[in-house]
Simulated assay, not measured.
Amino acid sequence: MKVLFIGGTGIISSGITKQLLEEGCELYLLNRGNRNENLPAGVNIIKADINDEANVAKLIENHQFDVVADFIAFGVAQLERDFRLFNGKTKQFIFISSASAYQTPLSDYRITEGTPLSNPYWEYSRNKIACEEYLIKQYRENGFPITIIRPSHTYDERSIPLGVHGSKGSWQVAKRMLENKPVIIHGDGTSLWTMTHNSDFAKGFIGLMGNIHAIGESVHITTDETVTWNQIHEIIADALGVKLNAVHVSSDFLAACSDEDYRGGLLGDKANSVVFDNSKLKRLVPGFEATTRLDQGIKQTIAYILAHPELQTEDTEFDSWCDKVVLELDAAIWRIKG
């Protein structure tokens, strides 16, 4: 199978890249080469900026692909470009959408691919919905062989998956745990969530590649494991070998008092309980099973990050913000009691 990935080095795509190469796939990555130093041997690099459409058209002029997947498209204009570049040059075009595109708030916490798409809280999600609508139109009117994939919260060894963190990543939350500082958990921590290891995501993704039954379809890929945010934080603290000092804060309050996009990322996504029904994926990919339990995956992630200081990016601004939020909450409690 001859495959082209636009991107190919992110959390989701890197796991797929690794597994495809192990299977002997003829894999090409089209990217600017900024994060290619850790790629496995055997990958073919097309070094280019996908936004330079004329240059990319020349570089792929003599190529035909079985699968093209765009991991870095976030708006309709980018997919219009992809259609011009790859219509007639691939047997399958895979678009990476987002499970955050599903109805928010949900009328039923159990999510299938038939759950309506609507998210008034997050522009990112609305843009993904618009992208899906554009591709469906091209499929219906021009026979463009699309498959739409909706990941939920997917993680790998390079970053600890969390709901509340700063713009520099999640290490500062782990550092607060190690220092026994209060750690903010949105809401009361009992909402349900799903986190999928990228190696498990890759199994489902690869099973959909070259799959004639996936053409024209939308599919989400997640584990069947469901946990609460309290459990997630306890798992992380346990992997760090410390006791969790949790402080629960309203998601609305966090969204109102932070410059981070907590309105989108929390109110439009992680503050809501979600349970994914993967029946459709399992019909399309018989034998699919996510096998990395969250506590196992988190232990691997923590061990990797602790062994790689370059991944321990401190965020003093976020740290100060957390202290201020906790202080204000404590002060409010004393004022009310007083």
Rank of each mutant, 00 (worst) to 15 (best):
K203D: 11
T222V: 09
I215V: 15
A214I: 11
A202P: 09
G207L: 05
T228Y: 10
W229L: 14
D224C: 05
N230T: 12
T223Q: 03
L208S: 05
T228N: 07
D200E: 04
E217Q: 15
L208I: 11
H233E: 12
N230P: 11
S218E: 00
I215K: 07
G210H: 08
H220W: 13
I206C: 09
G207C: 10
H233S: 12
K203Y: 04
N211T: 13
I215Y: 05
M209E: 08
H220F: 15
F201R: 01
W229C: 01
F201Q: 01
W229N: 10
S218Y: 00
D200Q: 00
E217T: 13
D224N: 14
A202L: 09
G210W: 08
Q231M: 14
F205S: 01
A202D: 08
H233L: 11
L208A: 03
F205Q: 01
H213Q: 14
I212N: 12
I212M: 00
A214M: 09
E225F: 11
H233N: 15
F201M: 09
G210S: 10
G210T: 06
I221D: 03
T226N: 12
I206P: 02
N211D: 08
D224W: 03
W229A: 02
E217W: 12
K203Q: 10
G216A: 08
V219N: 01
A202I: 10
N211L: 08
G204K: 01
M209G: 07
G204E: 04
A214L: 10
H213T: 01
V219Y: 02
F205E: 03
D200M: 03
V227Q: 07
G204Q: 00
F205N: 02
I215T: 11
L208Q: 04
M209F: 14
I232S: 07
H213I: 01
A202F: 10
I215H: 04
D224V: 02
G216Y: 12
I206T: 03
N211S: 08
T228W: 06
A214C: 10
K203E: 12
A202K: 03
I215D: 07
F201S: 03
L208N: 03
H213L: 14
T222S: 11
T223S: 15
H213E: 15
T223R: 01
D224K: 03
H213V: 00
H220M: 12
Q231K: 14
W229G: 06
H213S: 15
E225H: 10
L208E: 02
M209A: 13
S218I: 14
I232D: 00
I206W: 07
V219H: 04
A214V: 13
T226E: 08
N211F: 09
Q231I: 09
K203A: 01
G204F: 03
F201Y: 15
T222Q: 08
H233F: 15
E217F: 14
F201G: 02
Q231A: 12
V219D: 01
K203M: 08
E217V: 13
T226G: 00
A202S: 13
H220Y: 12
D224L: 00
W229H: 13
I221P: 06
I221W: 06
S218H: 04
T223C: 10
H233C: 12
T226R: 01
D200G: 06
M209Y: 13
T223I: 11
S218R: 12
I221S: 04
